[in-house]
Design a protein around this nucleic acid. Structure first.
Lengths: 219, 219
DNA sequence: GCTATAGTCAACAATGCTGTCTATTACCTC
DNA sequence: GAGGTAATAGACAGCATTGTTGACTATAGC
């Protein structure tokens, strides 16, 4: 009964198929958020049979979790992977380079940024994010190194910088179309952030009471 | 042919029905994002017949847009509505109060915050957001008033503060369960943000080159 | 009091997605 | 060449969602 059409195999390497599915899932995730991630759409976009997707990820939830975890790994790799060896020689990564690197990453990986932000916004809350932990850790070392102020609340500061750096390119992407305009917007972000961490935004002389209240952690 | 059950009218005021639908839509939107906003789910949550929802909003897209616009209005009202008169007498709203107010708003309106953030993250990009415009405007006045530094890039700074202030409670909500813990986290955010805008995060003496580069806008 | 109409509701058809299953083809290794 | 693995095609029931339509009801205007 050879009624059914030939079932050609496009790919013989299961690992690459898996990656393609995850990549497609990332795209969908970045576009619509985790709640509207559909196996059918992912399979379609990956150019893969729906059954194949179900072979790799038995259920929609499994695919969602696998994708989230894959995103976390990829961000970590992209960000820290290729200079693991550097951090052994160099004690502290210079502030301006670190910021430029972060901003650059966000600008060049809007999908990963979006996916990460969606994850943050998901009510579950991923505490076990490798990237986040490492980022906070390095910021802590920086604060203790003498280059950064010691009274920083590291977690909060890490959150502020990360959240705004990753969200900025998305905001920009929606408002500025051309590559040139986007580059300019990235520069503006880095400059303003540098300005902020160097000088703050208030004129101290006009805020004597606040200066007093927030100096040396006195309440 | 009275086979069909009586179609009782629970509500005679269309405006209130509309509001209830929008409120339910906001809840769904805040939970799952705009892409997975379904009329059926909204109607169910609003305790209203699906057909009624379609009467008020002919299509899913219409409901989504109406909700987004309603969110924008509500944020504006909640934030600026009840002290419109104050701003006429008072020239500049003090920095610490403004920040506390923003943080407070975000902590007490996580749904509106989430909805706003989802809107920011939507690829469309809402340039016409009343709240955003007003916020940037006031920050600009502050920068020019002498209380704030003049070299601030107002739009970028506004984005950084808004994005992190609105996203923070969501992040916190996922990590801290009790009300007490959340209050503490809010305080941490306000303190760190104040510390940041007052003093920055770098030790200037250790970054002489950066200080030079970013002073007076010299490149 | 009667009727027109706006507001609401229940039911319907069409579509899409999920999860599962079977039959089939291609490739790789032994 | 045999046997296992990876992938495809197709079909199925169950369910949710989208729009549409026709029927019902409360209220306002006459």
């Amino acid at each position: 009964m050879a009624t059914s059409r030939p079932a050609r195999r496009n790919n013989t390497d299961p690992e690459s198929t898996r990656r393609e599915i995850l990549q497609a899932a990332l795209e969908v995730l970045a576009q619509d958020g985790p709640e509207s991630l559909s196996v059918a759409e992912v399979a379609r976009r990956a150019g893969v049979n729906r059954g194949t997707a179900y072979q790799h990820f038995p259920t929609r939830e499994d695919l969602a979790h696998a994708t989230a975890s894959w995103v976390s790994d990829r961000i970590y790799q992209e960000f820290y992977g290729d200079f693991e060896q550097l951090s052994e020689t160099n004690e502290v990564y210079p502030a301006d380079l670190a910021l430029a690197r972060l901003s650059d990453f966000a600008m060049n990986n809007p999908e990963l940024s979006r996916a990460w932000l969606f994850d943050v916004m998901s009510t579950q809350g991923t505490v076990t994010d490798k990237f986040w932990k490492r980022y906070v850790e390095e910021l802590g070392e920086f604060a203790r190194s003498g280059y950064g102020r010691e009274d920083i609340d590291v977690e909060v500061f890490a959150f502020i910088t990360l959240a705004s750096a990753l969200l900025w390119p998305i905001w920009v992407g929606a408002h500025a179309k051309s590559t040139k305009a986007r580059d300019k917007m990235q520069q503006r972000f880095v400059d303003e952030m540098m300005r902020l961490v160097l000088f703050g935004s208030l004129v101290p002389e006009r805020h004597a009471n606040l200066v007093k209240r927030f100096s040396k952690g006195g309440k």
